[in-house]
Every structure is written in C-alpha cells, then in structure tokens.
Design a protein around this nucleic acid. Structure first.
Lengths: 262, 262
DNA sequence: ATGCATTTGTTCGTATGTATG
DNA sequence: GCATACATACGAACAAATGCA
C-alpha cells in the first residue's frame, strides 16, 4: 500500500555486517539466532529498503543451507521485534521506520524527522524548575543546586515515538525560557523567542542500556531491546553552555550516524 | 563454597570511624543513609577495588543488622550516583572507569587505548578470505562475491576486553594484506607494510543490541547489558574504500563520543 | 538439555515515627 | 487530641537472571 520506494538512503552509504561468514554450527549459538542476526543487520543497513520485499523462506533456506523451519523461526523473531512483517501468500516485508539520526553541529529534532519525509510532533512530559544535580551541574558548568529548567519530551515521527529527551537549561542564563517552552512547540523556537538565535552541539556521548518499563511503554519498544542513550552539550555562538541534554532512542528503529563533514 | 570468608576489614585500614561503629537507630539519620555513607567511604578507600564484587545484599543486611530492603535502598542510591552497578543474578560491583571511544577521522585502536594510559593488545579470532556478501560488497563498492579479507579481533586494554571487531578489506585492491595482518599486529601496521600509509574514517553508524552468549563471554559482559555496535567505512587518501568494519563494544565500560572539531 | 543454588529485582502487607494542619 | 501524609523499616514471597554440576 505505500510502495513509494523513495530512498532517503541515497545520502547514507549502505553497510551490513556479519554477512560475510557462513553459519557456525558448533559455535554455541543457535542457527536461527545467527540467521536473525544477519538478516537484522542487513535490514539495518538498508537492504532490502524499508517497505521492500525480503527473499522468500525457500530462498533463505537455500542460502543458509538450513531447513525452512529454521528460517521461519528467525523471521518470526524479527517480526515480533517489529523489523518486518510476514504476509501469507505474499512474502515478508521490511518495516518502514528505521531512522538515521545524523549527528551534526546543528541537529534539530524536526529537521531530522522531516528529512525522512515524516511529520514531527512532540508530547511534553515534564516542564518545571529543579535544582541541578551534580551531573547536570557539571555538564552545564554551573554549581550543583542552581536552578535549571527541566524539559522532557517524547518525540514522534508520523505519530510513532522515536525519542525521549530530557533537556536541562540554566535558568539564570536564560530568563523567560519556561513560559517560552510552554507557548511554542520546539526548543529552537522557544530559544529564539528569548533571544538565542543559534546554538551548536558540542559533544555527543553515546551509550546504551535496557529500558525501564516506563520508557519501554512510552517508546513502544520491547523491554529486551536496548535504547541508545546520548548526552549532548549545546552552546551558543559565544561558547556559553545553554543546554545539557540526554536522549533515549529505541533500537533498531533508530540508529545514530556520525558523518565527519556532512 | 567459593569465596574466602576473610573479612577485608582486617587488612584494609579502617576508613575513619564509620566502619567500626554500629548504626545509630535513634540518631535522626535514616539507616539506609548511614549505610550508603559507609559503603561509599569504603569504596573511596579502595575496598573493593574498581570492578570488584561487593558483598551480597544478604551479607550486608547481616553485617548491619537491617532488612535487605534497607540495604537495597542504600545501594540504589550509590548506583544512581554512579559508584557501583547492580547486576541481577550476579551481585553488585564497584564502578570502573569508562573508556571514551572518541570518533574521529583517524581513530586507531591502539591510540585510543593508550590515551587512557592502558596497554593495548589483541587476539585474532579469524583471518581468511571469503566471498563478499551483498551488504559487504555494497559497503566496499565492489561486486558481490568478490574476494575480501575477513579479519576478526578481540581488542583488550590492560588485558580487559573492550572491543570485538570484524574487518572486511577488498582483496583485489590490497594485495598481500592477509600475510601482513598475520605478521604484524595492528591493522595500521599491516596496511602500511603493503603501501597504504594513511586512511580515514568516513561514516560511523551506531546501534545497540544484546550480546549472544559467545560475544558475552569474549567481552566478559553480562548477557543483559547491551553492546554498542558500530559500522564504519575507511577510505585511503584518494577516496578509495579500503575497509568496511563492524565493531561491538561492551556498555557501560565503553562509551562512544563524537566531537565535531576535536 | 535439565535441574538446582545463588543473587538481585519486584510486589505485596504491616508497623512506626515525624511533620502538618 | 486527632487525621493525614510521608518517610522509614521489617517480613514474606515470588520472579528473573546467572552460574554450576
């Protein structure tokens, strides 16, 4: 039903992984798990493209030299994980929502989503003044206990949750930010309203962990699929730190991409 | 029937008055706070050492004469503060330093490790010629089925595993690479030996997933802690793709850091 | 592959002390 | 004095993950 095969991937080169080696029959890893891993990485790398048709089960079983049941087991696992869907009589198709989050100095949520031809939206979960914890204070370069504006938002693309972000702004340095965030939607717009017309991402730190039940529900992801967790510091043009943010993205729906000079 | 039941208290110098005295039940300070302070000071004093195992919750609760809930409350506080981590089914462990993997155009394994004042080493797991899968071929810009050198290595820092990497090199473009990799240690050295004196990282793609049993054992990480998974493309100075690599890093021991202008 | 012991994670219920109004 | 809310503490039971034989 949606067969437009627009590849946003035109810009991002394709990789895949692990696909070079044959299966290990004595490796202690079940064959269907190895197959699932391989197909997952190929999907993650964009082959076939989102919405595209996977090889038939018979083709897979020939390629890997295993029984069709083994292939089915792997595909069922991936279907449960939301990576593909299996349709009786038609075939298996790659799910269409793998979003590359391209990290750059001016990465903005709405631009990220629109680059994938989807409609960005957001839901505010928290917006209030709190005292800075030691970690937040260190990130912002202020003293612990100082007042910060805390802003938590669920980010959606075409209504599908793709990010859960926590933003900390130094209240003293950014007067009037809280009402601005309430009135506008989007951080960029709120900052502009109080006179910050540009800001740059300085460092991005990436880790991963399993979601807690709340995060899993908000992001609509299984509890055993890790989240990518990023911490970033944003500065204004004078180099003052104006935001310390932490965001969580569901894998494998979202990947983070670093391009040195894109 | 395994742990020697030596009380570390005998060997370790008494950290202040804290460890010796019992808890004060009437002092106006919550028991769990007192416990948290004691454990914190013991960790600060180096017992147990970073990465070492703390006593079990049951042992703590016996030592302090409190309920396990009370101990847990204290430990959870310290986990939030980043001093230790709790792992279901295994125990609690003193936090270790995280290795920041700084992504840049010339990121090299040994330099990464040495930057953290640790000694890099590696263990070759696979080294052979295989036919390029479609995904690998696409990454390398060659035709599927062409011969590629497949190189898998476990990377260690001071003997502790920190990375598990799979490298694919186009065999036709890089004659003599396989013996060079066998003879030298380090990819940079092997490439230099066959005339490639510099190479640059072009894109890095980051995702995360749980390890399979093999990966968990090689990287010595629990099964329920995600791996950071990266895919990267390296090119020589003329822009020819030289390597397509996929690497896995254990969280939270390793984090990936992106600095736009470092 | 199976079962068992160990350890942390989670959820009940109960009771007490303290601060507030 | 009394009701309420909250933090603290204990107890029991079970779930889930791990490691080992």
């Amino acid at each position: 039903m949606h067969e437009l095969v627009m590849k946003p991937a035109a810009a991002t080169p394709p990789p895949g992984v692990l696909a070079g080696a044959p299966l290990q029959r004595e490796g202690g890893v079940a064959l269907w798990r190895q197959i699932a891993r391989i197909v997952e990485s190929e999907i993650a790398a964009g082959s076939p493209a989102p919405g595209g048709k996977l090889p038939t089960e018979a083709q897979f079983s020939q390629r890997f030299g295993v029984n069709r049941h083994t292939v089915r087991h792997a595909l069922e696992e991936l279907e449960r994980a939301g990576l593909l869907r299996m349709e009786q009589g038609r075939g298996s198709f790659v799910a269409e929502d793998v979003l590359d989050y391209i990290v750059g100095p001016r990465t903005r949520f709405s631009e990220w989503i629109r680059r994938h031809n989807k409609e960005p939206s957001g839901k505010i979960l928290q917006l209030r003044i709190v005292a800075a914890s030691a970690a937040v204070a260190a990130g912002l370069g202020i003293r612990a206990g100082a007042r910060v504006v805390l802003f938590e938002r669920l980010g959606l693309a075409d209504g599908v949750p793709v990010s859960l972000s926590l933003h900390h702004f130094p209240a003293a340095r950014l007067r009037g930010l809280l009402p601005a965030l309430q009135a506008t939607d989007g951080i960029t717009a709120a900052l502009r309203r109080i006179g910050v017309h540009d800001y740059l991402r300085q460092v991005t730190r990436v880790s991963a962990r399993l979601p807690d039940p709340q995060e899993a529900e908000l992001l609509r992801t299984p509890r055993n699929r890790p989240l990518l967790v990023t911490e970033a510091i944003n500065v204004d043009r004078e180099g003052n730190v104006i935001e310390f943010g932490a965001a969580r993205y569901p894998t494998p729906r979202v990947q983070i991409v670093f391009e040195p000079r894109a």
